[in-house]
Amino acid sequence: MDIMGALLKGEAPKITTEENDIIERLAFYLRRLEHRNAPDAAKDPQVFPVRPKDARPKKKVTYYLTKLIIQQLEKAQQKLAEAESEGIKLKISKSVIVETALRAALQELEAKGPRSRLHRILRDVCRRTKEAQPTAMTKPGEDVT
């Protein structure tokens, strides 16, 4: 099963042929297509009539969140969307909610230091985990339960 196993798992070595050149060009073209298509969909006037284009560069990152907080984030997004504030519908992406909440917390941390909410909560988290087990760091790829 060794050749087969390697091929199934995509672990077999790849030879260098003119094929590789095409593969690279294809990958590049695909990134361009995806890049171009993504903002296109957002700009679609029927879907988001007044959504301004955000000029700040964004980046996709991977951090681990508990399943519970993801659920709560989804609920919050729905609630915001249903609510209407001063005639404005709050139809907001989860990225924007996370960005805004995080910015507020970080600004407070910056201003108040150890007296900020974030600092106090995190101190409690560390204290509790220290009492329970010695490690508080999640390894990359590890499941958070």
Binding site: L7, A12, P13, K14, I15, E19, I23, Y29, L33
Partner: peptide
């Protein structure tokens, strides 16, 4: 195109 890219990579590994 995404599928083509993936398949081309698999094909290259069989050509090995």
């Amino acid at each position: 195109i995404q599928g083509l890219l993936e398949f081309s990579r698999s094909l290259a590994s069989v050509q090995n």
